[in-house]
Every structure is written in C-alpha cells, then in structure tokens.
C-alpha cells in the first residue's frame, strides 16, 4: 500500500491534487481511497488530502499514520503543525520551496526533497496554482510509469488552462524523476 498526505492551504488545490492522483491510480486499476479534511476549511487555513493506493481492496477507515509521501504545498505548514507527525525515515517529504532540501534537514530524519513549483507554475502562466506541478513531482518521485494517463487525467481534470497544467505537471514529473529536486 502506498499512502500519501498532501497538504496545502485552502485555495491552493491540495484536495484536488489528491483526487487527481487517486483518479490516475483508479484508472490504472488500483484500489484507491482518498479523503480530505472538510467542514471548517477556509481559504488560507491548512487543508490536506489523504490518499491510499493498493493492489487489493482498501478497508481501513482511519487516518494515515505513517505516510510514504508527504506533499507540502508551502513550507510555512511545517512549522508547529502535525504534518510530519507520522513521518518515518522511509517517508519522502516533498516541499514546494526554492530552497535546497538541506535547509529542511532540521525537521527530522526523513527524505526531504524540494521543488520550486512556484517558479514552474509561473512559467506556465498558472500564477500561484502549484498543484499540478506538485502532482507531477510526487509521481516523479515514485517513478510513476503511466505518463500518458497522467497527462490525460490532468488534462481532463483541469478546469482552465488545460495545456498549461499538463505542461506544468510534466515538468514537475520530469524534474522529480530525473532526481533534480
């Protein structure tokens, strides 16, 4: 089982990122379960999406204790939050930041990777919308094989600027899978 926790701030598209990835795995024939925090979420407050992917039916109905990958939309979320609570030495922590990963070493004993998704998104005229870039990067980190499906799902899911989102996602994927993060 592969477990993701994706966290951003309300309005950044973290929840959509979770759903997008779930859909991708679902269409591959994997069993998925994704849910997001809800209810009190307002723009700017932390929101997260939890995603489980498995080859067999997923029955657990509880929070992800030890995620395989944490996608952090904004380094500010790392301070004083609970995002890294369940991270282990095996956990990959993908942080949207222009700083090098070493800057985050103090957070704990896990694999920190950074990507300057903001710059990539800007480059593709997506403004501050970094979710497609980060989705690409997260998938790149796990060497996700079905790039065509990724393109397709991102394309189908993006409400606007479809090509820009697809391109940003691809760039994120590229950067991550090449180990350039």
């Amino acid at each position: 089982m592969l477990q993701f926790i994706i966290q951003g701030r309300g309005g950044q598209g973290a929840q959509l990122a979770g759903k997008l990835m779930a859909d991708m795995f679902f269409q591959e024939g994997k069993d998925v379960l994704v849910y997001a925090t809800y209810g009190g979420a307002r723009r700017g407050t932390p929101v997260s999406s939890s995603l489980r992917v498995d080859d067999k039916p997923i029955r657990m109905r509880c929070d992800i204790e030890h995620p395989d990958i944490i996608v952090c939309f904004d380094p500010s979320l790392l301070e004083g939050g609970t995002l890294l609570k369940g991270a282990t030495a095996q956990t990959i922590v993908l942080i949207n930041s222009s700083l090098p990963a070493e800057e985050f070493a103090h957070l704990g004993d896990f694999k920190v990777v950074t990507i300057d998704a903001k710059t990539i998104a800007k480059k593709h005229q997506l403004g501050r919308i970094v979710n497609t870039t980060l989705v690409g990067a997260a998938l790149g980190l796990i060497d996700y094989a079905n790039v065509d499906l990724m393109e397709k799902v991102v394309g189908e899911t993006s409400p606007v600027k479809v090509q820009n989102n697809v391109a940003a996602c691809m760039e994120g994927y590229q950067v991550a899978s090449e180990g350039s993060c």
Binding site: K19, F26, V34, Y35, Y38, R61
Partner: peptide
C-alpha cells in the same frame, strides 16, 4: 454511513 471516512472518501 459515517462522516468523512465514508461520506467524503472517494473510492471505486
């Protein structure tokens, strides 16, 4: 069914 774990969880 229950909030969150079922109501808002997406699955097949």
């Amino acid at each position: 069914h229950e909030a969150f774990y079922v109501s808002h969880s997406m699955e097949a």
